[in-house]
Design a protein around this nucleic acid. Structure first.
Lengths: 192, 192, 192, 192
DNA sequence: AATGAATGAGCTTTCATTCAT
DNA sequence: AATGAATGAAAGCTCATTCAT
C-alpha cells in the first residue's frame, strides 16, 4: 500500500470516529469524507460501504480493548487493581459508539473472537480478584462482566467519573473505598 | 374525540413503542403504521410528524417515571427501600428508548419539567435514605442520580436483573446484601 | 332539494370562490369546506370531486358573463357603448379565476356552449359598433375578442381601471377619448 | 465547474422552462429531470429545491428583459420605436411563466432590483416618446407600464400578435397605425 | 488513485377521496 | 344527511453508492 493511501485510510478512520461520535451513527458519508479532507470516492475506495467503515471503527476499538485488557492482566498487585486498570483505560475508548454501531452490523466472526478474548481475560482478572480477596466474592463473574459493560459502554464515559468510581468501589468486599480516591464530578445532566 | 380515533391513537403509540424498541429510532413511519394496522395518513393525522410521535412516546414514559417516583416516595420504611422501588419500577419503563429518542428531539419545557420533577423526588428519597442510614452516606446525591440514570436507561434493563441488583446492593452502607435476594441471571451477551 | 341542502351548496360555492381567489387553484378541499363552515363529507355530497366544484364555479361565472353580454346587447346607443358596458361588467366577474380553473378542466360541451354564446353576442356588438362608426373598423372581430379576453381575464381586473380604460379608448376610431372619463389609478406594482 | 456539470445545469433549466410552460408551475420534479435526461438527484444537486429552480428560471427571464430593455433604450429614432422594440422582444420571453412562478416565490431583493431596473428604463423610453410626440401624452407613465405588463405577460404572447399590435397602435397619438403593419392572426380560441 | 457529479431507491409528508360513526 | 377520521397514491427531497472525468 502506498504511503499516501495509508495516510488517507487513517484520515478516514479518524474522521469517521469523530463524526460518528459527534453526530450519531447516521452521519452522511459525505460528512465523513469532508471531515477527512477527501472526496467520497476515495472513502469508498478504502471501505466498500458504510458498514465496512463502521465495522472498522468498531473492530479498532475492540482491538484496543483487548490490548488494554491484556496489559491490565499483567498490571496491578491484586485482581481489583487490574480490574480498575481495565476499567479506567476502557472508559477512554469509544465503546458507546461501538455498541451503537454494532447494532447496525451483521454478526461477524472477527467481532465475536475479539469479544470472547476480552471477556475471557476479564473473567480471569475477576476470578483472580475474588481469590485474592480484593473483589467481593458474592457476585457471579458474568454479572460483573455485565456491570463492566454497562459502565464502559456509557455515552460520555470518562476515566474516573462518578459512575466508574462507584462501580469500582462497590466491587470491593465490605465496601471499603480506596483512601484518597478522587473522581470527576457528575456531568450534572442525567437523561432521567 | 371519537371512540375509534382514541383507539387508533393508542394503537399507534403502542405500535411505535414496539417498533422503536425493535428497530431503533429510524424505523419507517410506514412500518409503525403497518404495525398499528393503519394507513400512514392516519398516523399523521394523530401526530403531525415523526418528532411529534417520538416526543409523545418519550413524554408518556417520563410521566410514568414521575408517577413511579411519586409512588415510591410514599412506599417503603427506609429511603433505600423507596429507592429500590423506584428502580424496580423504572427498569420496566422504556427509558433506554427515551434516551435515544431525546437525542433527536429539540429541547422542550415539558420534558425539562418532567425530568426536574422526577430528579427532585429521587433526590429527596436519597437524602432520606442517607439520614435513616439505609443508603451509604459517602456519595453525593448527584452521583447517585447519575448511577440511577445509567442503570435504568440501559437497553434491555429488566426489573431485578443483575446490574440493578448490584447497584442497589452497592448503595447500602457497609455493603450488606439483603438476605435471600434473588435476581435474574445476566443476559449473557454483553456488548463488550 | 331541501332548503338546508340548497343553502349548504351555496355556501360551498361562495367559500370555494373566495378560497380559490385567495389561495390559487390548489387550495385544499378541507380549506374550502372549513371556509364554508361544513365538513369535507358534505362538500363531496354536493360535488362529486374537485373538478366538479371548479367546473361549477367556472360555469357560474360564464353564465353571468352571458347575462352581462345579453344585457349589454340591448344597452347603449352605439356599439361602442354596448361594448363598454360588457367590459365594465365583465371586469367585475372572476374571469381570471375561470381562466386558471379552465386549464385544469377537461373540455366540456356546456362550457363550449356558454363561450360560443357570449362570443357570438359580443361579435354582434362589435359588428354593430363598426357599422355605426363607434368602433374602429381596421381591426378584425376575432382580434377584438382576443383583446377583450385579455382585458377581462386579467388577475385583479377592476371595472374602470387603467388597462380597461386604455383598451376601450383605443377601440374608438381616430382615438378620441371620451370627455370626462375617469379611471382608477394603476395598482402600482406590475409584474414586470 | 466541470464541463458536464455545466451542460447538465443548462439542460435542467431548458427542460424546466419547457415543462413549466407545458404543465404549469406544479410539474413534478421527476418530470423535469426526465425531460432533462437526468435523475432527480442531479436536479437537486444543481437546485436545492423546487423554489430555487423556479427562481432561476424567473431570474433568467428578468435578466433578459433588462437586456432587451437596455438594447431598446438605444434603438429606434423615436420613443415609440424603442417601446415597440422592447415589446416585440419581451413578447418572445417567457414572462407569463415568470408571473406564475413569482406568485409561488418569496419576495427577493434580486427580483425587485431587476424589476425596478427594467421599469425604470421603460419609463424613460415612454417619457422620451411623449416628449418627441411619438407616444400619446394623455396617459400617465404608470398606466402605460401596466398596459405593457398585461400585454407581455400574457400566456401565449407572440411577437407581432394582434394584442401586441393593437396596444402599440393605440399608443400612438391620434391613433394613426403604421402603414403596412402586419400582424399574426388571433389564436382563435380565447379563454372567454 | 482521487474526485465529486450522477443516480435512483426510499423515506417523509400531503391531500383528494372514501367510509364508519 | 352531516361529519371528520381513515386511506393510500403521489410528490418532494435525501443519501448511499456508482462512475465519468
Amino acid at each position: 500500500m502506498r504511503a499516501d493511501a495509508r495516510r488517507n485510510r487513517e484520515r478516514i478512520v479518524a474522521a469517521a470516529l469523530d463524526r460518528f461520535a459527534a453526530c450519531g451513527p447516521d452521519v452522511g458519508m459525505d460528512d465523513i469524507a469532508r471531515a477527512a479532507g477527501l472526496g467520497v470516492g476515495t472513502l469508498y475506495r478504502h471501505f466498500s460501504d458504510r458498514q465496512a467503515l463502521a465495522a472498522e471503527i468498531a473492530a479498532d476499538a475492540l482491538v484496543e480493548l483487548v490490548a488494554v485488557t491484556r496489559a491490565a492482566s499483567a498490571s496491578g498487585a491484586t485482581g481489583w487493581e487490574s480490574f480498575r486498570d481495565v476499567t479506567q483505560h476502557s472508559t477512554g475508548l469509544p465503546l458507546a459508539l461501538v455498541k451503537t454501531l454494532s447494532a447496525q452490523l451483521p454478526p461477524s466472526d472477527r467481532f465475536e473472537a475479539l469479544r470472547a478474548e476480552s471477556n475471557g481475560l476479564l473473567a480471569e482478572i475477576v476470578a483472580r480478584g475474588q481469590r485474592d480477596g480484593s473483589i467481593r466474592a458474592d457476585l457471579a463473574t458474568p454479572d460483573i462482566l455485565d456491570l463492566f459493560s454497562v459502565v464502559v459502554c456509557r455515552a460520555g464515559a470518562q476515566p474516573g467519573d462518578s459512575v466508574t468510581t462507584v462501580m469500582l468501589d462497590g466491587l470491593r468486599p465490605r465496601h471499603s473505598p480506596e483512601p484518597g480516591q478522587q473522581h470527576t464530578a457528575a456531568a450534572g445532566r442525567h437523561l432521567v
